[in-house]
Design a protein around this nucleic acid. Sequence first.
DNA 1: ACCTGAACACCGTTCAAGT
DNA 2: ACCTGAACACCGTTCAAGT
Lengths: 231, 231
Amino acid sequence: MAAKGGSQGKRPQWPTGPLLSMQETGSEPALSIERIVATAVELLDAEGVGGLKMRRLADRLGAGAMSLYWHVDNKEQVFDLALDSVLEYRGTPQSIEAGDWRGAIFHMLEDWRASMLRHPWSASLLPRRALGPNILGRLELLGRVLSRAGVEEADLNGAIWSLWNYVMGATITRANFNLSDEDMLAGQQRLAHLSAQYPTIERARLLLDNDWDGVFRKGLGLLLDGLVPSR
Amino acid sequence: MAAKGGSQGKRPQWPTGPLLSMQETGSEPALSIERIVATAVELLDAEGVGGLKMRRLADRLGAGAMSLYWHVDNKEQVFDLALDSVLEYRGTPQSIEAGDWRGAIFHMLEDWRASMLRHPWSASLLPRRALGPNILGRLELLGRVLSRAGVEEADLNGAIWSLWNYVMGATITRANFNLSDEDMLAGQQRLAHLSAQYPTIERARLLLDNDWDGVFRKGLGLLLDGLVPSR
DNA sequence: ACCTGAACACCGTTCAAGT
DNA sequence: ACCTGAACACCGTTCAAGT
């Protein structure tokens, strides 16, 4: 609550510089938000959401167990910062200029999904956490392109959220199913035993053999076709 | 790992009878999976995912602290059972018979979303947990109606997952934003300060005043129009 | 300004023991 | 068969203290 050390509010103060650009010198460099966040991402990638523990994070940084709390308010803030750091977008150079709004949106949203799948913990985390600058930047870009493509001001929020919903749902589902392929197999085998109760999805082998990328693109295309007026 | 007490596998054994139908007699009735799950749902509704603690759950059941572990393998199983218990679907009486496949799908998916929003903890939980019988039942129904509506066998899984993705994304987002309206307000106010960086979404007031139900229905309609061939 | 270890108040779960 | 309390191995976080 009270101002203490490096951060003065409830909300994280987003670092301004680029992350993940630390030199590993011989002896450990000094602690910093950047190093903490970069190492937290490493730890999350390696062990998942449950694997991020403050003591282990400090260990990996070569720091004393409780040193982190000078740089960071609490564990929640580490999550917020790690999440946003993974969602930077450097893109849409030519397509947006060429007036190819469909290509620009597809590129940004596919990149968004790909970024989250590279860090599977991030997808489930995103909807529950604060919206950092990289997330807001993507939303801003999305809104700008949609608007330029002809979406009315009154329909803009609805269009943005529809796309958000679809991308989040697809990515969260994919990230979690991906984490446990053997679970899906087990599920499908359990289904086979119950094929009397679930004949349709059993026959379609719903829990197996899915072309996730293709499904994602197709649904996204349908949404875009409906949301943006054809001219 | 080894069989112990009431449950013999890693996966939860889903109870067969209806849940939530316990009589509160004068003295506490005996412990049972049904009572445990029903009370877990109460606790989750009242305090959220973080509020479910094994000791508190036992307390609320008037049982000794560790009695639960005879009926349940671990906390994870409590989550699995609570989740599925909340997703029962008794519906589609007339519309599916009348051949109104669009109405049947809309009804089932809107009910799905409504059920999860009545228990906001359930939405974020669902993609990470095992698919219980109630969830599988909804997927089966969805597949059956889509198939009857003319979706090719080869397109069936894609259609089911597209709809799943959209419903999950919309519900998870809504459930989490709902939980912290003041966060959205704070976010929008923070945005106002940064309107130079995010002019489009600031002007559209993206983080405020959203007609969530309308947005959900519209996007769902667009997806259905695209996924099911018109005849 | 920056880091540290000891200590506190929790957790989930195990286990030997009760009825 | 069903329940119990004590105990273990953790957690996040606070705090007084160091440099």
